[in-house]
Amino acid sequence: MANKKKSIIPTIILTVICILWLYPILLILLNSLKVESAITTSGVFSFPTAETWNGISNFIASVTQMDFLKSFWYSLVISVMSVVLILICCSMSAWYIVRVNGKLSKAFYYLCVFSMVVPFQMVMFTLAKTADTLKLNNPYNICIIYLGFGAGLAVFMFTGFVKGIPMEIEEAALIDGCSPFKVYTQVLIPILKPTIISTAILELMWVWNDYLLPTLVLDIKKYRTIPMAVQYFRGSFGHVQMGPMMASIMIDIIPIIIVYLVCQKYIIEGVVAGAVKG
């Protein structure tokens, strides 16, 4: 910009704020490398020294005690299956809602918008019971519940986008003899691609970090997603082992940060797109 000199001071101020912003995570990282006795309430700020250095043994303890790989697998299965299902089903429904535009499809659209505002506590008890009755209480079927509860946001975002697509392209494809399903896969999906990415990111952020829904629906003794495992770890033992606890937090954060740094552009664009549609 025109005044280069002036911009040094704000850059320094912003850098300081950024370091403060990252500090909580750095603090956990430092403590996850210390021995148990060095992680006391008042001793959390001390750097690990030669005596208090514990290497990665906290991480090993936490991975084995928490059964981390299993939790990671469940979290991955649930998130990926749910998000894929949401994207396919909701983009189809949104297309139908916009193009058919009858009373029923409008009613369904408004119900979806309404469901976004309703707090989860309103349905948690009855939803868990419904899931038990319909045998949706395992990590492979729970995606149907996520489709139902996540449909609101996805249908809302997709309809907002489909409204802006001119109908002529689809008409031309239909006249040329494409079946509606083929029009959806060959014409609509390529046009929808940016919205699909944005919606995928918003839904993924929600499902991956969701704690209460899987806790109530799944059997905690058999299946634990990562947030459930962290909470279980903290709550189940009489005396909490702080070292492995810190390590388990780091294990939860590290994959998220890696994915974030790789897909940063899409994540931020996804958030903006979600907000503009909202």
């Binding site: 089903c89 369904f108 119900l111 979806c112 469901s115 309703v118 309103m122 349905v123 009855t126 939803l127 019971k129 419904t130 319909l134 949706l136 149907i144 519940i145 996520y146 489709l147 139902g148 509860f149 449909a151 609101g152």
Partner: peptide, 10 residues
Amino acid sequence: AFVIGFLWPF
């Protein structure tokens, strides 16, 4: 899915 996951429990 919407009925199972939201409308009916609601």
